[in-house]
Nucleic acid binder design. Structure first.
Lengths: 189, 189
DNA sequence: GACAGGCTGGTATGATCGTCCTAATCTCTG
DNA sequence: CAGAGATTAGGACGATCATACCAGCCTGTC
């Protein structure tokens, strides 16, 4: 029943990631993680001293995945425009989850933005940095490099707005529409 | 020290509204409301049976304020374009709060979107409905009425994305920039 | 001026929170 | 196979949560 050796820690992070995404960090309790993994409290506590530590691990896992995805796109697509298209296409293919739970990065930052503590906020923001910097790189080869950062933030804001409204109104057509607009915009660059 | 008669209920709602906005609904406890109003627990409980009831009252107060603002704009500005400009200008004038705490409606919907319960989610969404319908009305006189709703959602998404990114990066210049873009877009309608 | 009903204050309650401790078990090394 | 160190299980802890109850206090009415 229980996991094989060496997998426990990953199982905790994996379950926590899902729960934090679907219920939010604050609303997720230790007991939730226990009941969703079958791993006992004390065992979880052996791997993570605090709940915040679990959040850190989740954020790092997200960062690693996103970094890997961006590198894969870099290797796969030489044209910066294609890379931008791939980025907005990610929203489309993630549509179902976005509608149900919103954007993982956006909602996490929104929640942590309400907390007093600083450490977690900053690492959550770094998830955005990942995309912002990568997008800025693509834009810098397409237009005035001085504007690349602004354009990256613009596109990030657009996709976050799309995710939020798509989530609130549970509207896949809206997402499709908006993504098409973004694709047309990318074509004109 | 304590409030004059008849004001107690309003004081509770006012404090809860601020706390829910700044800390989030889940992170705000009864004790927080007690210590920020000087009103005792039992007294609060006399006016509201549950914490959810307080949230309802807060949402209703927000809705009333927004409704009043939109009516005022209707009375003040005959030109639909001016009304749209006023809408995006609201983001600009609210800049400081948006940077600190994000959009009240957006962050509330994000938080409640993670909750299982349905009643609160829907009333929070109705705050968006208020703006969406009002915006759609303006757009319907400017362009194809069939597209009015889509345009309204588009503009809402834009402003929400701006609020989110402005909040995450605490960047007033980004907000100014993006709002200018929206104003130019409105000019072209 | 007394009675009633809403208003206010303080405290009690059971549940749940994150955290911690320890004993049992597993696994690898010598 | 013996012993050590990592892993697991399970329960206990105090704090805090939302909720509930109750005893006084106003305030307006007859």
């Amino acid at each position: 029943m229980t996991s094989q050796r060496g997998h426990t820690r990953d199982d905790i992070v994996e379950a926590a990631r899902t729960l934090f995404y679907q219920r939010g960090y604050t609303r997720t309790s230790f007991s939730d993680i226990v009941s969703h993994t079958g791993i006992q409290r004390g065992n979880i506590y052996h791997y993570f001293k605090t709940k915040d530590d679990i959040l850190d691990a989740v954020i790092h896992q997200l960062a690693n995945e996103y970094r890997a995805a961006l590198s894969a796109w870099d290797a796969e697509l030489p044209d910066p425009k294609d890379r931008l298209r791939r980025f907005v296409q990610m929203v489309m293919s993630n549509r179902d989850n976005l509608i149900r739970y919103g954007c993982p990065v956006g909602s996490l930052n929104t929640e942590l933005g309400k907390a007093a503590a600083c450490a977690q906020r900053e690492s959550a923001r770094q998830l955005f940095d990942l995309f912002r910097d990568w997008l800025a790189e693509q834009f810098s080869t397409l237009t005035d490099p001085q504007q690349a950062r602004s354009l990256a933030l613009h596109l990030l804001g657009r996709t976050e707005g799309i995710s939020l409204m798509g989530h609130v109104y549970q509207d896949p057509d809206f997402i499709r529409n908006e993504i098409e607009m973004l694709e047309k915009w990318i074509d004109t660059l």
